[in-house]
Design a protein around this nucleic acid. Structure first.
Length: 515
RNA sequence: GCCCCGGUGGUGUAGCCCGGUCAAACAUGCGGGCCUUUCGAGCCCGCGCCCCGGGUUCAAAUCCCGGCCGGGGCACCA
């Protein structure tokens, strides 16, 4: 029986076999459906600590959260988890930057909350748990507690009655206890296989918080797991997207949900996201900035959203890439090739072309004694955008790039793009002498002569190229009439796509995006 | 040490839940060709992957066990 006959036969006796296959194929594009998601009822959140700039690593949870809220016509909440005024201190500027960056990524933020505005809420739930006998105020020295915990033993405060716990709590609130002297713990299972889960801390004291938003008004601050657990419920969050590193936190938070008989949101854990050769760590970035190694949070070498933007990466490219990576639990390292390929597709149609000659070398041209104005389209596929004009003047040199030196050998020919073909006479790093050969492009093509770009004169231009942890500066000449504005994304022909970063008088500074 | 995850071409993902249509798909990369006043794009051809070992089964990338490798957590950080 041939394959076709078999298929026909199978279709007779078992038609469902073919139907299922069709369904499967269709789901490929975009994100998979979310478990337990109902149209219009999905509420997601992104909860960053504003202690640094938003970066690609954070973007995974953020984009997934937002994307699903949109797919299901639900709500996306931005919540600043700014409850650590000490170790991971929030800074005012980052609140604004994160909102800005999210908007730049095309987010519609339905609600914004600040954990630091919600301390009274955390307090009231803490009191309830204390009263319920599900939490206690522990005044053990941290080392002592840790020791007991590791042995699976209760600390002396654990089993004191709720009335005492509430009294102790008052002492925490009114300042009788100082930093490090008391902490509220959630009762869990003292024999839990993971010691970190055992009676985890929920609130602690900070003496002089000097919090950027609430100053010294509050001295008792919730820890992440407590604040987050309460907030996710209070704000009605239905689905949580977070990194694999938070998997254990979920175990902790579930105790709180169990005590209050709340339903825990659906959680989706994804792997960590990094990008080839780029540092994402906030603390390392901060250090580099303080040491003067980086220009700032938007240094083109960094993986912050602002840095990517500064390089001319489109928000759509970042979104597409993250959606393509999807929900995988394994860690992923994004390659620049992939990001660049997506971005190139997006900017190619909008980027006008210009000649930028890096490390210019003068080229003397003999044998052509008339002025010649080369007219080059701003974009080869969009002639309606007009042309740039480059004027060749007899007796004056043109400039070509040192990068093209290897293409220039005595007695060989090259074509100066959009000008004419020349024969090379002499070559050195100080200067090149050539002789006019012919005008026709066809001749260059038939002979497979290489084509190089050039400028008759130009304005000073610097291109900043991030190469791993180095920032290479290429100096050169940009065609004089290039009409550029800051933020323009253009293509320097045969060099790469760049974003115009700065214009000071004549001088243009650009940042390299990719080839 | 204890506790979670994960391992498909160079890179990123699909397939794994529900074993057969998978000698494995898509994108990117790399090599070649066509086209084209650069590059790029486009079109065509090619390269390249199921971590290892057992088991179950007529049949395993897919299920089970073991190993190896990688990541993460074990804070009065988030």
């Amino acid at each position: 029986m041939s394959i076709e006959d078999q298929k026909l036969k199978l279709n007779e006796i078992y038609p469902e076999f073919f139907e299922k296959k069709e369904e499967k194929r269709e789901e490929k594009k975009g994100l998979p459906p979310l478990p337990k998601a109902e149209k219009g009822k999905v509420i997601t959140r992104f909860a960053p600590n504003p202690d640094g700039a938003f970066h690609l690593g954070n973007a995974r949870a953020a984009i997934l959260s937002h994307e699903y809220a949109r797919i299901y016509g639900g709500k996306f909440i931005l919540r600043f988890d700014d409850t650590d005024p000490k170790v991971k201190r929030p800074e005012p500027i980052f609140y604004d930057w994160i909102i800005e960056d999210l908007k730049w990524l095309g987010f519609q933020i339905d609600e914004i909350h600040m954990a630091s505005d919600r301390l009274e809420i955390y307090y009231s739930y803490a009191e309830k748990l204390l009263a319920m006998g599900k939490a206690y105020v522990c005044t053990c020295k941290p080392e002592n507690f840790r020791k007991l915990r590791d042995e699976g033993k209760a600390c002396p405060h654990r089993d004191l009655p709720p009335e005492i716990q509430l009294q102790e709590w008052k002492k925490m609130i009114n300042g009788e206890y100082k930093e490090g002297e008391a902490v509220v713990r959630i009762k869990t299972d003292l024999t839990h296989p993971n010691p970190a889960v055992r009676d985890w801390p929920a609130l602690r004291i900070i003496n002089n918080p000097n919090h950027p938003r609430t100053g010294d008004k509050y001295h008792v601050w919730p820890l992440y797991n407590f604040a987050s657990a309460i907030d996710d419920h209070e704000l009605g969050v239905t689905h949580i997207f977070r990194g694999q590193e938070h998997a254990e936190n979920e175990t902790k938070q579930r105790y709180v949900y169990e005590y209050f008989e709340w339903e825990y949101p659906q959680t989706v854990h994804h792997g960590r996201l990094s990008i080839e050769g780029v540092i994402l760590s906030k603390s390392k970035t901060r250090k580099g900035i303080e040491e003067g190694k980086y220009l700032g949070w938007d240094d083109p070498r960094l993986g912050t959203i602002r840095a990517l933007k500064r390089r001319g990466i489109q928000s759509e490219a970042i979104r597409e890439l993250i959606i393509e990576i999807g929900l995988k639990k394994s860690d992923t390292t994004i390659s620049w090739d992939n990001l660049a390929a997506i971005n190139r597709r997006l900017i190619e149609p909008i980027a006008n072309r210009y000649f930028f000659v890096a490390d210019p070398i003068p080229m003397e041209i003999k044998g052509y004694n008339e002025e010649f104005i080369a007219e080059v389209p701003l974009h080869p596929d969009h002639p309606e955008r007009g042309v740039r004009k480059l004027k060749f003047t007899p007796g004056k040199p043109v400039y070509v790039s040192k990068d093209d030196l290897e293409l220039l050998k005595s007695n060989e020919y090259v074509r100066l793009k959009d000008l004419f073909n020349v024969k090379i006479l002499e070559v050195s790093e100080e200067g090149i002498v050539v002789e006019f050969d012919s005008i026709e492009y066809e001749k260059a093509r038939e002979n497979k002569w290489r084509m190089i770009h050039w400028v008759p004169e130009g304005k000073p231009c610097e291109v900043l190229i991030p190469e791993g942890d180095e920032l290479v500066v290429r100096k050169g000449l940009l065609e004089t009439d290039a009409d550029l504005k800051v933020d323009d994304i253009v293509q320097f022909e045969r060099f790469g796509f760049v974003r115009i970063d700065k214009i000071e008088g004549e001088k243009v500074t650009a940042i390299f995006a990719h080839k």
